[in-house]
Design a protein around this nucleic acid. Structure first.
Length: 505
RNA sequence: GAGCCGGUAGCUCAGCUGGUAGAGCAACGGACUUUUAAUCCGUAGGUCGUGGGUUCGAGACCCACCCGGCUCACCA
């Protein structure tokens, strides 16, 4: 297909040439509006109630939007234009517009941006409509939008015929996707609402929003491979952050008490339904608190967000009903795995654990330690059943190098992960603040790296130095904002909640 | 990384065991001054993902590659 020159573009080009010969400007500079599309519809409803049907009093409006449909009837035409608030019907009549401006309508195309002003009325079928007194072309569309056809709004759900559904094209040309699929715009409105609600929730509780480096000399705070870049004049390797954790905790050392950051993080891993190489994470840290208090806090934060965006504590995600009314279930990792294996997993040596796990069909590796085996068994045997919001608590120390040891069980940590619909949404712990212990944990990671683990935490000497100055007891949490948005907007793929997801060339 | 499915007009899709491409919507021309998936009549539009191969002949069969989706693996 010749993308750059086809019949359709040829036809539009001819219209452009005719417009250039006329008085009509193709690309205007501005257009003063006094109403949105939604306000026009609301205004007419109000008028019906307040003024009744006298119909004499004319209400004049100026609105602007994109031309989405046009139905020509010879000496009159109906059309719909859409702005950020929705669609409204407009009506062109020869005897009102005059010959020139009426005939010039032939030079318009779907996708053009128009400003119109005129009086509002209701058609025979009851639709709020603007009778256009004059119209202004605001921007000419040279490329045909992939518009489908929508059945009329009232009582139907706006069934779309045809439409633009090719997922690859929708991601590659998100502008076209947004232009023709209002439900996609709605998803991103919800996303924005989710983020602003999170921000307000934390601001209201005296958290300080901060910005920490995206370019970092040492990456850390998570187990993942980083993107590597280089600063030319410093001749130095820098990494795009995989998490903000270690910087935010430095701020707690600095006495800032309560901090948060909503950040883009970058992980050089595979791409699938739940992973995009760049994604949005909320992390917050609060001094003088532990993971128990954080769990209550998280319940409150999530139910506030869900209620604010959905107007309810319940929602449907991919056919499952999810209820955000706290308190959420809590499942302790070690007893849960012990129960399902019928063995006290806490007493197992790694070699025994490996054999038992293998018998149960868990994909394990012979050289794994006890902690990794426990985590993997949990992930395969227990996690898939966690549909309702559930805190999984007390992870092995071996896989939690930044979490404080459990106050009663030393090989575990005070950590929780929140699972909803079988997916991890958040990860939090009582932060490890003993610099000696922290160094030992980092060294343990180094040994795992030498054993071939590619996603260990490197030793961050500066972070240890910070801990040596003294970090108060602190609870911290990281939450995947994209995944939360998927849940709340009922989208099955992370790409559907990221405006411009990463694709191949 | 592996398996399966897909890439045909601007969009959504059809094209049977190989005979050189079709519909709906959009577009273009015409009729129609309250329509709403407007209607009616007419027209045009495609290097069938890319590159090879088999064949008298390939959208279809074979091979390789590119892009996407799903599942699994890996991973949070």
């Amino acid at each position: 297909m010749n993308d750059e020159w086809n019949q359709l573009r040829q036809q539009r080009q001819e219209k452009i040439e005719k417009l250039r010969e006329s008085e009509i400007q193709l690309y205007a500079y501005n257009y003063p509006q006094d109403h949105t599309a939604k306000e026009v519809v609301d205004l007419l409803n109000q008028k019906d109630e307040e003024i009744g049907t006298d119909g004499e009093k004319q209400l004049e409006v100026s609105i602007a939007g994109r031309l989405l449909s046009i139905r020509s009837h010879g000496k009159s035409s109906f059309a719909h234009i859409e702005d950020r608030t929705g669609k409204v019907q407009i009506y062109f009549k020869l005897d009102i517009l005059g010959k020139d401006m009426f005939e010039a309508l032939d030079l318009l195309d779907l996708g053009d941006w128009l400003g119109v002003n005129g009086s509002i009325f209701r058609t025979r079928t009851g639709e709020a409509t603007v009778q256009v007194r004059d119209w202004t072309l605001l921007s000419k569309s040279v490329r045909q939008l992939p518009l489908g056809k929508t059945q009329s709004e009232e009582n139907s759900s706006g069934t779309v015929y045809g439409g633009f559904s090719n997922v690859e094209m929708r991601y590659r040309q998100r502008y076209a996707d947004l232009a023709v699929n209002p439900e996609v715009r709605e998803v991103f409105r919800s996303r924005s609402k989710i983020i602003s609600t999170l921000r307000k929730f934390l601001d209201d509780r005296d958290f300080l929003e901060v910005e920490t480096p995206v370019l970092q000399p040492i990456y850390g705070g998570a187990a993942a491979r980083p993107f590597v870049t280089k600063h030319n004049s410093l001749d130095r390797t820098l990494y795009l952050r995989i998490a903000d954790e270690l910087y935010l905790k430095r701020l707690i050392v600095g006495g800032m008490g309560r901090v948060y950051e909503i950040s883009k993080d970058f992980r050089n891993e595979g791409i699938d339904r739940f992973h995009n190489p760049e994604f949005t994470m909320l992390e917050f840290y609060q001094a003088f608190t532990d993971y128990n208090e954080l769990m209550s806090f998280t319940e409150c934060m999530l139910s506030t967000v869900v209620n604010e965006v959905k107007g309810s504590l319940e929602l449907e995600y991919q056919g499952q009903n999810i209820n955000f009314k706290g308190p959420f279930d809590r499942v302790s990792m070690l007893p849960a795995v012990s129960e399902i294996l019928g063995e006290d997993a806490g007493e197992l040596r790694p070699t025994q654990f490996y054999e038992i796990a293998k018998e149960r069909g868990v994909q394990v590796s012979e050289n794994w330690g006890w902690g990794k085996l426990l985590d993997k068994c949990f992930g395969e045997l227990v996690q898939p059943s966690l549909i309702q919001p559930t805190f999984v608590i007390d992870h092995p120390s071996e896989i939690s190098p930044l979490a404080k040891a459990h106050r009663h069980t030393p090989q575990l940590t005070e950590r929780f992960e929140l699972f909803i619909a079988g997916e991890e949404i958040a990860n939090a712990f009582s932060e490890l603040n003993d610099p000696v212990e922290q160094r030992a944990r980092f060294e343990g990671q180094e040994r795992m790296k030498m054993d071939g683990d590619e996603e260990t935490h490197p030793i961050d000497e500066d972070y240890i130095r910070a801990l040596e100055y003294g970090m108060p007891p602190t609870g911290g949490l990281g939450m995947g904002v994209d995944r939360l948005t998927m849940l709340i907007t009922n989208q099955s793929a992370i790409r559907d909640v990221i405006l411009f997801p990463v694709l191949r060339d």
